[in-house]
């Protein structure tokens, strides 16, 4: 009876080990950068085969130093710089609790004009400025700051000229 129990335990362990090995092979990572490039090879000189967005799911094919060969959900395979991915899915936008809180507080959506990058102080900030003696010049400064744009291409060029990120030697 004891032998049968031991045999059963061994079989269970064997099956569990097999399952765990499979899981380890199917490693999933997520794009952790706001935008990231997938290249045909493991250097920043290789052509870009896809532009990836924050939070995209990737399957790891293999690792080589600071580069990972990955496959997108659409089946495109290429290389991505390791700093551009993370093992956990990055939180994006409001989490559910924050959205729930906003709904309960009954946010008046029509009073919001300051969606990311949009120009102009929103109504509540303008009201605060009026009550706090903030000058027009100071309001314009926040306005300009809110609207300040730098393209992804400019940031990539900046990283490249500094040999930073995936452009490191």
């Amino acid at each position: 009876m004891n032998h049968r129990c031991a045999l059963l335990a061994m079989m269970v362990s064997f099956v569990t080990a097999l399952t765990m090995t499979d899981t380890a092979f199917g490693e999933t990572v997520y794009v952790a950068a706001k935008t990231a490039q997938m290249r045909s090879g493991k250097t920043s000189l290789d052509p870009v085969v896809a532009s990836l967005k924050l939070g995209e799911t990737l399957e790891v094919v293999k690792r080589d130093n600071r580069w990972l060969q990955v496959q997108t959900t659409k089946g495109v395979t290429g290389w991505i710089y390791s700093s551009n991915v993370s093992a956990s899915k990055p939180a994006g936008g409001d989490n559910e609790l924050a959205a729930l809180g906003r709904s309960f507080r009954r946010t008046d959506a029509s009073s919001v004009t300051a969606s990311a990058g949009a120009r102009g102080l929103d109504k509540a900030s303008e009201g605060y400025a009026n009550r706090s003696g903030i000058t027009q010049q100071q309001r314009d400064a926040v306005d300009r700051m809110t609207a300040y744009k730098i393209s992804d291409e400019e940031i990539q060029a900046f990283l490249k000229s500094g040999r930073l990120g995936e452009y490191a030697e």
């Binding site: 936008g93 409001d94 989490n95 609790l97 924050a98 959205a99 729930l100 809180g101 906003r102 309960f104 507080r105 946010t107 959506a109 919001v112 300051a114 969606s115």
Partner: peptide, 8 residues
């Protein structure tokens, strides 16, 4: 008691 959202 719930977190503040991004718009706020």
């Amino acid at each position: 008691l719930l977190p503040i959202g991004y718009e706020e």
